[in-house]
Amino acid sequence: MENLYAALTSVKVLRCSVGQIFNSLANGIRADHGEEGRDTKFLSEIEELLNAVTHHLRDVEQAVNNLSQPPGPLTLGNTNFLSQECTQERQALYSQLVLSYKWTDKIHEYSNHAAALLSQNSLKRSYMNPGSAKRRRTQTSSHNVSPQAVDTVISAIDRQFNDMTMSISRPFATNAVLQVSLGRVLQAVIAFKGLMIEWVVVKGYGEAFDLWTDSRHKVFRKITENSHAAMLHFYSPTLPELAVRSFMTWFHSYITLFSEPCKKCGSHLHCALPPTWRDLRTLEPFHEECKL
């Protein structure tokens, strides 16, 4: 590598000195050659320059001799094909390179922000969590709950609210899937893992109960999103029962989804949507845009 750099530098020097010769030849005899014997002065200057060129040429030859043959053909990937097209304008490389550079820069910036945010909020709820031994034990306790215990907790919550009916099914082995009907306002499917709420889908009255498709109404898709936020907010590994109970209390406040106006702006509609957010502590209704 060193040799290669040396060779490239010597080639550069040679080109410089050749350039100089042509430069002075083109200029011809200048004023600083004086009046007397200016031809000889000029000739001697050219001769000097030519000597420098021969000297530099020798340098180049020496440097080239020092270079070793590269082992095997060079693999350049797709850049090989660049030699096929020789006009630079038609390759349009520069703008694409700038664009991709900008993208990488942006991705780098965003991922930095995301990493900072995620490290602050511990939303990891899976077994993959490499926490301390103690933490892992408490987590297991919210996952491995007997089906009877889950049933008792849910039926206790069911009794607490008159206008919310719940039914439990277990299509996936021991884990419960809860179907909730909230008055005639909305329905929800909540998937549990032990006593941990794992997934929530909110749908309209009369839509099919199923875990995989979104509601066809925009309001309920928005509430599904908000329920996910609430489920993460209420999650507590040490008191799983309390987490489910608080989530259900929060969820029950949607019974007034269409009838109660936003607490902040006082109107029902904003962007053609009713107040889809309920405050996590006070349960007051807010529009998505008004809650801040």
Binding site: R184, Y205, V219, F258, S259, S267, H268, L269, A272, P274
Partner: peptide, 15 residues
């Protein structure tokens, strides 16, 4: 999304 008139009277009137 709403199937019961009494729930969304205010909302409909506003709209």
């Amino acid at each position: 999304p709403c199937v019961v008139p009494s729930n969304c009277v205010g909302l409909m009137r506003e709209f």
